[in-house]
Design a protein around this nucleic acid. Structure first.
Lengths: 329, 329
DNA sequence: GCTCCTCCTTGGAGCGTTCCAAAAACTGCT
DNA sequence: AGCAGTTTTTGGAACGCTCCAAGGAGGAGC
């Protein structure tokens, strides 16, 4: 099924059919109608490769998959892919996956560019020291990142979750319930997202005039250290705990258990990410849900804008998580 | 960067460079070397779209993303995508995502085929009543499914987890530890994978001459009903429980807690899927891990075979889960 | 009816690759 | 050196699309 066949059927030239699809305003309404009918009847669809060859645009968005780091595969990856794939489809683009092992990551991006296998990229799992942004920016390749690099000198567009706004919202919610002693169970300092979440708690506490000293503890995501860390908060008399992740919140559940106390009834607990665990715990865990769907949509919006105008100034979007209140509050 | 430029540099004809890449055995070693050096120096990579246009093969594997059904998005999706993407890359293929809302699912597959946006498909989340297999088979489109249709008359290749083997292995392991009263906490009858897992338990119990009557209970995946169901097993005196999923196993943890008993110490518990929750629970949950990485590799192996020979008989691969023993045993 | 102008439609060329058939370069042997 | 046979290299054509410049049709004005 080619343009030529549609043209023959409609009794027009090849190019006219092409115009009917790409610049319908050029055709006389009557001709347009005739061509459209032919397209419809033959169920014609343009050949992607031919279009790509001629227009030098693949209409493919590259997404480099990095090896999952242990078990800590982002619990939101599939939802995110879902969202960008949906949004891309609507715009006539599609998402193509490629493997990007850390040691040859940039080579893989280069390869895709060389063989024109993608017009643009979506990055995720960005963190300090991520070289991809600067590299793509220098090459003038359109891209958008889910996540900041936290270096202060981001190049290019990004969309991110406003972690600080999330934890701040949790503080305010807990304060409105009467809590004054709200602890924060975070990751060790140094991670961008972790520090951001801690800051939200810190600033909100100060704004409300609530005590901050010795109310913040740190732990990696594993259960045992998280439990110990949470225990220190409880020891200090916290009546509520905000955790930087659901995994950490589980540590807090453990610590409460050991003391024979019940999350929610005795001490309020709020997690972050609203991962599947949240509803598996008893009592069910309140958590700050990331609007991944919206992140995906925004990413694609920025990316399509960028494709239309490579030179426009960089745009940043911060989306606030929302608190899913469950039994643990 | 085109073939022509490489040819000029190497002092040969365009076609010779093409041969150097696709049929190196046709060239004199000395010429081959010269061409290879030119390719290397210029960092040449064939233009995908041009190749696709000429060979009528996009070297793209389609993966239709279905809207996530609530929160129950397969906890293994991203690992699976990872695996097939890796395997595809090795074979010079790439995975392209497209949205496939249920009501127009087949249309989307048709669209990709029409526009030659994919040469083959990988399906997942198959279940009874899935029309995709039959449809693709009738059209002669290469595809492979992760998961059976459980209809007894599967068409086409598939790879699946041997759920029965997994639960059977768990039974044997528990029996070797001295357990005789091993209960099964499953989903309501009717789901392919669920019945399969139940069968493995059932057959192994019978083989070992262990009691089966009243040792099997059913519940949907939600916490409350799972807890109730598990409680009935405990009431009946089970000393070990095998659950059809980690979510159900969490229900069992709850039931034990209510009775003041400890998983592992008092009653052994084994989950299924080895989801992230497993290590977040205390005591850590033993679980049957699905070899998703291997599933992805096998899927791609079958698919590439199929692309080479559309007519070969269908092949099926069953991969056994392996028991990750943790504190709950 | 003719010219001029505008708007619509058309054929030719080319994107970068591989297929194909034919030309050229080697072989070994007379 | 010349020839047949084989191996290696080559140019032309085509894949299906869109760009481009030019052709044709239709309408307004004289």
């Amino acid at each position: 099924m080619t343009l030529e066949m549609v043209a023959t059927r409609a009794g027009v030239a090849r190019q006219t059919v092409s115009n009917a699809i790409n610049s319908p305003e050029l055709l006389r309404p009557q001709t347009l109608e005739r061509v459209r009918r032919a397209i419809e009847e033959l169920n014609y669809r343009p050949h992607r490769a031919a279009q790509a060859l001629r227009t030098r645009a693949s209409r493919l968005i590259g997404y480099g998959i990095r090896p999952s780091t242990g078990r800590v595969t982002s619990p939101v990856l599939d939802e995110f892919l879902h969202a960008i794939s949906d949004a891309a489809d609507q715009a006539g683009y599609r998402v193509v996956l490629f493997s990007a092992p850390p040691d040859e990551e940039l080579d893989r991006y280069q390869q895709l560019l060389d063989e024109q296998g993608a017009d643009a990229f979506v990055l995720s799992g960005t963190d300090r020291g991520d070289r991809r942004q600067a590299w793509l920016h220098k090459k003038g390749v359109p891209f958008v990142a889910f996540g900041r690099t936290w270096t202060g000198r981001d190049v290019g567009d990004w969309v991110d979750i406003d972690g600080a706004a999330g934890t701040a919202a949790a503080v305010h919610h807990l304060a409105s319930l009467g809590h004054r002693d709200i602890g924060f169970l975070g990751w060790p300092k140094g991670s961008g997202a972790g520090d951001d979440r801690a800051r939200g708690w810190h600033d909100a506490m100060r704004t409300l005039g609530l005590p901050i000293r010795n109310r913040r503890v740190e732990s990696p995501g594993d259960l045992a250290p998280a439990t110990e860390a949470a225990d220190r908060l409880l020891e200090a008399g916290a009546t509520a705990v905000i955790a930087a992740s659901d995994a950490l919140a589980v540590g807090c559940y453990q610590a409460l258990h050991r003391r024979g106390r019940t999350p929610g009834t005795d001490v309020a607990v709020v997690g972050f990410d609203d991962s599947p665990v949240a509803t598996m715990l008893w009592p069910t865990l309140s958590s700050l849900a990331q609007p991944i769907e919206a992140v995906g949509r925004e990413c694609m919006r920025l990316l399509l804008d960028r494709l239309n105008d490579v030179r426009r100034p960089a745009e940043h979007v911060l989306l606030a998580p929302h608190l899913i209140a469950r039994d643990s509050i």
